[in-house]
Design a protein around this nucleic acid. Structure first.
Length: 474
DNA sequence: TCGCCTTTT
DNA sequence: GAGGGAAAAGGCGAA
C-alpha cells in the first residue's frame, strides 16, 4: 500500500484532506501517470467526473465522513454563496476620512524618524532598518534565520524604553500596515452600492476552518484605537442592525469535551473564568487570589497547550526561564490530568494509524515523509492543535447550516454576512424591536445547541450600527 | 518568487 | 543538536 505523501510546499493543493487517498485509489486503479501528486493533478483537470466517482467510492467507505460531506460541507457551500453575494456595507466616506487621519500621523512620524536617520533610509525595508539600528544607533538586535537583523515587533519592543526612535518605528509600522491593507486596498473592493464581497474558501485550510480573501474580512483590526476606527467603517444597511454572535472560549470548551477533563468541565458549567482557574492551579493559590498578571500567565498557558507549545516557546513569550516554563507546563498537566492522558493516547494513535480526526470526523493525514517512523516537533504541534481547532471549525460550520435552515429560510429579511472563525455577524431589521429580540434569541439558541458537548456552549451577543462599536445585548 | 512583517481567531 | 506556539491573507522590498 502506498503511503500518503506530505510536502509542506505542496500541501496546500495536495495531501491536505482526501487528496492522498484519491490519488492512491487512482494509482491502484491503473491510472498512474507518475507520482501520486502528478496523477492526482492530471485527473483533477482532465477528468472531473471520474474523480468524483472515485471520491464518492471513498466516501462510501466512511459513513461519518460521508455525513460530514453531505450534511455539512455541501449545504454550507450554499450558505457561503449567499453571504458572499450579500456583502457588507462600507462607509467609504468615513474610511477615507480615517485614511487622512492616518496619513497625517504617518507624515509626522516620518519627519521625526528622518530627523534621526538624516533621511535616505527606507523605513519599510527591514534590511535597511535593521542595519541602521544596529550599526548607527547601537541597538543590539538579534538575527533572523537567514542571518539578517530581526526588526519584528517583539524584537524591537525589547528596546522600546532605551531608544526613543524605536517607538516611532513601531507606530509607523502599525499605521502604514493599516493604511495599505485596510484603507487603500479596501476602498478599491467596494461595489456600486459600497458593499464589499469577500470570497470564502471552504477547502483550503488543513484544519477545516474557512479562509477569507480579496478582501480578507477575518483579520480586520480590533486591538488599537485607530484599528477600531477602521472596523467602525463597516456598517449596517439602512434600517438594519449589525448583530454579532461570538462563541466564548470555544476551543478550550472543545478541549474540555474531547479530553473529558472534569475540573475544566466543572469550571465551564459554573461559568468560571478558565484563565483565572488555570492560574490559581499553576500558582497554587485560591481562585480569588489570582492577580491580573497571574491570569495573563494562565491565559498564555491555556492557549499554549492548544498550540502544542514547547517550554522554549513559552519562555520567550512570557519572558521567563525555560526551566520555569517547563514547570508551568508540568503543573498544567498535573492540574488537568485527563488532558495529559488524552494527548498521550491521541499522539500514540496518530503514529499508529497515520491519520487523525475531529469531532465530526474530518481527517488529516500524519506522514511528513513516506515511511517516516517518528513525529517531528513541528508535526507534534500541528497534530495537537488539529482536533481542537478542527472540531471548533466543524461546530461552526454545522451552526451555519443550522442557522440557514432554522433562521434564514424562515426570516427572508435577516442576513448572515460574515464568519470570523468563532464569530458570526448578521444583519437584522431594527424596526420591530420585539421581533428583533426574538430573532436574536432564536439564533443564539441555534448556536448553543449546535452539538451536545460535556460543557455548555456560551454565545456572547453584541448589536449596533457600526462593527467596531457594537455593545452587549441584554 | 521568497523572506519579513503585521493583522486576526 | 537545531529549533523550538496553531491556522490564515496580504503588503512590501529584494533578488
Amino acid at each position: 500500500m502506498l503511503k500518503p505523501i506530505w510536502d509542506s510546499k505542496t500541501s496546500k493543493d495536495f495531501s491536505a484532506n482526501f487528496d492522498c487517498y484519491i490519488a492512491e485509489a487512482l494509482l491502484s486503479d491503473g491510472h498512474s501517470i507518475g507520482t501520486q501528486e502528478e496523477t492526482f493533478k492530471k485527473y483533477k483537470v482532465d477528468n472531473l467526473l471520474e474523480l468524483a466517482r472515485v471520491q464518492e467510492q471513498l466516501l462510501d467507505k466512511n459513513s461519518q465522513l460521508k455525513k460530514l460531506f453531505n450534511k455539512i460541507e455541501m449545504p454550507l457551500a450554499k450558505v457561503l454563496f449567499k453571504m458572499e453575494q450579500r456583502g457588507i456595507l462600507l462607509n467609504t466616506k468615513q474610511l477615507k476620512q480615517v485614511g487622512k487621519e492616518i496619513e497625517g500621523m504617518i507624515l509626522d512620524l516620518e519627519e521625526e524618524i528622518n530627523k534621526q536617520t538624516g533621511g535616505g533610509l527606507n523605513i519599510n525595508s527591514p534590511i535597511q532598518l535593521g542595519h541602521f539600528l544596529v550599526e548607527k544607533v547601537g541597538v543590539p538586535l538579534g538575527k533572523t534565520k537567514t542571518g539578517k537583523y530581526a526588526t519584528n515587533e517583539s524584537e524591537l519592543s525589547l528596546y522600546n524604553d532605551q531608544f526613543a526612535i524605536i517607538s516611532h518605528i513601531l507606530s509607523y509600522r502599525e499605521l502604514t500596515k493599516l493604511r495599505s491593507t485596510y484603507v487603500e486596498s479596501l476602498i478599491t473592493k467596494t461595489d456600486q452600492n459600497d458593499r464589499v464581497h469577500t470570497t470564502y474558501n471552504q477547502v483550503y485550510v488543513n484544519t477545516g476552518r474557512l479562509a477569507s480573501s480579496n478582501p480578507n474580512l477575518q483579520n480586520i483590526p480590533v486591538s488599537s484605537p485607530i484599528g477600531l476606527e477602521i472596523k467602525s467603517c463597516f456598517v449596517a444597511s439602512e434600517g438594519m442592525n449589525l448583530v454579532s454572535f461570538d462563541y466564548s472560549q470555544q476551543e478550550l470548551r472543545v478541549l474540555a469535551h474531547l479530553a473529558d477533563e472534569k475540573e475544566l468541565i466543572k469550571a465551564f458549567k459554573n461559568n468560571q473564568d478558565v484563565h483565572t482557574l488555570t492560574a490559581s492551579k499553576l500558582f497554587n493559590i485560591s481562585y480569588e487570589q489570582v492577580s491580573k498578571q497571574q491570569r495573563a500567565v494562565g491565559k498564555t498557558i491555556n492557549f499554549g497547550i492548544i498550540y502544542g507549545m514547547s517550554s522554549y516557546g513559552m519562555s520567550t513569550g512570557l519572558h521567563i526561564s525555560e526551566a520555569d516554563a517547563a514547570q508551568f507546563i508540568k503543573n498544567f498537566y498535573i492540574s488537568y490530568p485527563s488532558i495529559k492522558t488524552y494527548y498521550d493516547e491521541y499522539l500514540k494513535n496518530a503514529k499508529l494509524n497515520g491519520v487523525v480526526e475531529t469531532l465530526l470526523g474530518r481527517r488529516r493525514y500524519v506522514f511528513e515523509f513516506p515511511g517516516q517512523k517518528f513525529i517531528s516537533n513541528n508535526m507534534r504541534r500541528v497534530l495537537m492543535n488539529y482536533p481542537v481547532q478542527g472540531s471548533a471549525a466543524d461546530l461552526m460550520k454545522k451552526a451555519m447550516v443550522d442557522v440557514q435552515e432554522k433562521i434564514l429560510d424562515i426570516y427572508p429579511d435577516v442576513f448572515l454576512l460574515l464568519q470570523i472563525h468563532d464569530d458570526l455577524v448578521f444583519e437584522i431589521p431594527e424596526k420591530d424591536n420585539h421581533r428583533m429580540k426574538k430573532v436574536i434569541n432564536e439564533i443564539k439558541d441555534v448556536l448553543c445547541c449546535v452539538y451536545p458537548l460535556a460543557v455548555p456552549l456560551v454565545v456572547e451577543v453584541k448589536t449596533g450600527k457600526r462593527w467596531g462599536e457594537l455593545s452587549s445585548f441584554k
